[in-house]
Design a binder for these strands. Structure first.
Lengths: 262, 262
DNA sequence: CGTTCAGTTGACCATGATCAAGAGTGGTGG
DNA sequence: CCACCACTCTTGATCATGGTCAACTGAACG
């Protein structure tokens, strides 16, 4: 079974055996362990390495001066943290461990070497970066427009599908370490209201959430309840249909993607 | 006076005269005019060009099936739309014109040529991409955690500073074409409540908003009211302090940024 | 076996939504 | 030039979603 990063990247680009070997090597870099509820990176830091999550969950978050906290995104195995250290000079958000966390520390130079030698990997890395931006956009919609029930349902759908693409679901259930307070911070609700909302989802049979494990008996139903449309995740599978249609309607069109140098 | 794109990019990287000439050429590409309230790109499209906003305002947005609309970001002169067409195969959001809009259409190949020949420009383009991602993050915080008054104040601060960096403010006022309904869609409020909130901001002397023009008599006061911290915009000026501190504390450190090929 | 932390429940409250109507403004065509 | 239309802004009355505060339960872990 391939490692999570390889699985994620192959979600987008077909990789050669050489590419896979390169990625395996990345994964084997110096590993750092972070204890639950400790920070991997803190706002204002200027990290010199890129972190690759090998095992465990983390969350990106920002805090306001008066203590309010907003979780910006969850990070799961296969996610890279802060490719942007190549460009921006300090990180603008913190990353905290939700569980015990194992991360590979990838040196700038190492990543740079791979990026120059394996264009497939580079494209796939940027793909991950852009998908995570698309996820940000969806979160703005989530907190801005959806009701409490929709928000929580939507979050469950997203997490489940993202875990699925890295092989961390068994088809209808997955680990789910965030506490109700974490869900609250991610959805812009309070923990009390998240509790009531989760109970409602349970009552209507849409989710089973217990013992840090999430089960979704009927994904389509939960998606409907959360107004969830997976297109924004830009997964291969969810794009298949659109892809096929586009190729059919634009016969002479898309050459393989032209990578852009940076 | 340099064009808005040049101004924006120089906010990050010093550009050579050759770089500036290249950018001027980009700006001189085929121009497209879009009427107010019409779409430049629609969700699901697979555009073959990158748009550069020359004049006017646009907004990125997503809509839910039942008509709810969330504005994800405003786009102003100097903003590039969808650099990601190099990687993702369909756009996941629409871009609509708020005013009459003039955009330059930059062909993939053209951009690719410049990217390979001018590393400074490439870095600067990716910088813009990453900053806009950071802005997305801040919007999640805005809609997720802030009160109505804070949200609107925060939006005003952001827009004002972004316009300032492209030379579209006179120090304390700027154009502001979005309607109160647009502000509502951007902040996750209703138009009625935005109206009351704007009135409150007016009453306390924090903003003057009339005739599509925004005036901020006391920016520091408005920033305080909106819990606004400009760090997330990654502007040169707001980073100066941190930069200086970092250089002082890490003597042997940061070599010029290693661009990563893609 | 006590302490801690997540989850749960209830009573009450407030922010912001909804609905509806009217006022101002600008553009268009008769 | 004026009448009309469309759009934005404004205001009031009422309502509902979700917040706040506080107490209690239960499981996990030393």
């Amino acid at each position: 079974m391939p490692n999570p990063l390889t699985r994620r990247l192959e979600e987008y680009t077909p990789l050669s055996n050489a590419d896979r070997a390169e990625l395996a090597q990345l994964t084997a870099q110096a590993t750092r362990i972070v204890e639950p509820r400790h920070d991997l990176i803190r706002e204002g830091d200027t990290p010199s390495v890129v972190y690759l999550i090998l095992k465990g969950w983390a969350c990106r978050y920002r805090t306001l001066k008066d203590g309010r906290r907003q979780i910006i995104d969850f990070a799961i195995p296969g996610d890279l943290c802060d490719l942007n250290i190549f460009i921006l000079d300090h990180v603008d958000h913190s990353i905290g461990a939700l569980t015990k966390l194992a991360v590979a520390q990838i040196e700038r130079d190492e990543l740079h070497r791979i990026a120059t030698s394996s264009p497939n990997i580079t494209t796939a890395l940027w793909w991950q970066e852009l998908v995570s931006k698309s996820i940000h956009r969806e979160w703005i919609v989530n907190v801005g427009q959806r009701s409490a029930l929709e928000r929580v349902a939507h979050l469950f759908c997203e997490i489940f599908l993202r875990l699925e693409t890295v092989g961390l679901s068994d088809g209808f259930s997955c680990d789910f370490p965030p506490t109700q307070q974490d869900i609250a911070d991610a959805t812009g609700l309070t923990a009390v209201h998240v509790n009531r909302t989760v109970q409602e989802l349970r009552r209507s049979g849409l989710v089973v959430l217990e013992g840090r494990r999430l089960t979704i008996p009927d994904l389509a139903a939960l998606q409907a309840a959360g107004m969830f449309n997976p297109a924004y995740l830009h997964h291969k599978r969810s794009d298949k249909h659109t892809d096929a249609m586009r190729r059919a309607s634009a016969p002479g069109a898309p050459a393989p993607i032209q990578p852009i140098a940076i």
